[in-house]
Design a protein around this nucleic acid. Sequence first.
DNA 1: CGATTACTTGAGATTATTCAAATGAGGTGG
DNA 2: CCACCTCATTTGAATAATCTCAAGTAATCG
Lengths: 265, 265
Amino acid sequence: MPSPLVRKLALFSPLRADDRDRIMSATTHLETFQAETDIVSQGQVPRSMFVVEDGMAARYRVLKDGRRQILTFLIPGDLCDLHVFLLKEMDHGIAAVTNTRVRALTRDRAMAMNFQHPRIAAAFWWSTLQEEAILRERIVALGRRSARERIAYLFCELYWRFEAVDLVTDHHFSLPLTQSELADALGLTPVHVNRTLRKLVAEGLIEKRRNSVTLLDISALKEVADIDRDYLHFGAPPVEVETYFDRLEGNSAGEAAAGAGSPPA
Amino acid sequence: MPSPLVRKLALFSPLRADDRDRIMSATTHLETFQAETDIVSQGQVPRSMFVVEDGMAARYRVLKDGRRQILTFLIPGDLCDLHVFLLKEMDHGIAAVTNTRVRALTRDRAMAMNFQHPRIAAAFWWSTLQEEAILRERIVALGRRSARERIAYLFCELYWRFEAVDLVTDHHFSLPLTQSELADALGLTPVHVNRTLRKLVAEGLIEKRRNSVTLLDISALKEVADIDRDYLHFGAPPVEVETYFDRLEGNSAGEAAAGAGSPPA
DNA sequence: CGATTACTTGAGATTATTCAAATGAGGTGG
DNA sequence: CCACCTCATTTGAATAATCTCAAGTAATCG
C-alpha cells in the first residue's frame, strides 16, 4: 500500500523509483494531531515540514477581532511547507480539522533532498505550484463568485483532489467540515452557507451527510462554478522536463553543481 | 544602477556575487509590452519566464460571463513564472497594466540556473514563497475584510513592495490603476471602490492622483486593514540556510548532485 | 438523560451592486 | 484656442445578496 504522497506524486512528477524510495524512507516518522489543535502555529518558526497521511488540516489566519479565514485544506498526500526553511516565521497557522496523522520530515533531510536530487526538487516544486494554483482559484472564487458558485467550486476542487489520492468512491468522499468552517473558507456566514447548501441539496446536485458529501451531478456543479479541473495541473509534466533531467544526469552525474551556467541551446 | 531584481533579491536571498552575475547575464534581453496587452495568455504554453524591469503587470482570470479577477500585481523586480517549465499550460493570463518592459529568460537557462546553482534555486524559491504569501493575504482580504479594509490592505502591500525596490519617495508611489482595475483586484464594483476611496481621501489617510497615491498615514492604514509587513518575508533568511549552503559547497563543489541522501544529523 | 454543539429557519438591517446619468480630465484636429 | 471626443471618475436611487440577531430543532456525547 503506497502512501498517499507517492500516489499523488505519481500523477505528475518526473520522480524515479530511487527518488521515491528516498522520500519514503525520509518520512517514516508518524505523528498524530487531535482535531482542532494546531499542527503549526502562526508566528512559529517551524522545525520541520510534513506530509499528511490521513485526516484533514487547514491553513488559516485570524484577524485581531476574531474573523477567521481558512486559506487551504490539506488532505492526504499533501506536502506541507517544504519551503519553510527559507523563511523565518509562519504568516499563518495550520490546524488539524479532524484527527490527523502526518509524516514529519526534518529541515536537514528536506534541504538535502531538495538540493541534491533535482528530480525530487522538481517534484517539490510542482507541489508548491499546485498549491499556488489552488490559492489563485480561491481568490477568483472569493472575489468574483456568488455563494452558490463558491460552494460548487470548493466541492469540485476537493472532489478532484481526493480523487487524485484514491479517496473518492462513487462520487462520494469524506468531508468532515462544519458549515462554520466552510463559511470561513468561502468568505461567507455559516447561516448563508446553510441556506445555499440546502438549496443545492434540494436541486439534487449534491447529497450532504454530516461528515461526507456525494456530488450527484458534477458536470452541473462545474457549470455552476464555471470551473475546470485543469488548474490543478494533474498529469505528466511536459516532455522537455524529462529530457532535461536525462541530459542533466547523463552529462554530469557527479558534477551537476559545477559550472555550466550556459544552456546547450 | 542595479536592476530592480537584484535590488529585491538583495533583501533576502543567500545569493553571492557570482550568482547575481549569472542572473544578470542571463536576463539581458529586454522586451516591451504595450499597456492592456497580454504578456502571457491564459491557456498558453509559456516559452520563457521573465523579470519585470519597469511598468506594471497583472495576473488575472476571467470567467465565462466576463467577470474578471485580478490575482496579483507584478511590479519591477518581480520574477515571473520561474516554475512554469514544470507545467503544461497557464491557468491564468498576465497582462501589462501600463507599458511594461520585461527581461526574458529562456526555459533552458532558467532550468540550468535552478538545478545547477543551489543558491539561485533558493532565491527563486524564496520568490515563489513570497508570491504565495501575497496570494494568501489576498484571500484573507477578499474573504474577511470590508471594502475599506481591502483598499487599505492593498495600498499597504503595494507600498511595501515598491519600497523594497526603491520606488517610493516620501510615502508616494506610482499606481497607474483605474478604479475598475482596483475593483477587479479587490472583488468589488468600480462604483463602490470609488465611494470607499474618496472616503479614505476625505479622512486624510491617503492622497490619490490619477496615476499615483500618497499614503499620508500608514500606521492608520495598517490599523484599518489589520495588517503587518511581515507576511512579505523581506529580510535575511535564517542563519541555518547560509550554514547549509556553506556546508554544501564545502564538501561537494563538484558532486552536489551525487548521492548523500542522508543528512549530517 | 442533560449538556453541548451543529444545523435550520425567520425577519430586519447592511453592505455592496446595478443601472443610469452627470461631471471632469486629457487628448485631437480644426 | 476652442470644439469635440473619449474615458475615468463621481453621484444618485433602487435593488439584490448577504449578514446579524434571535430562536428553535436535531444530533452527538458523556
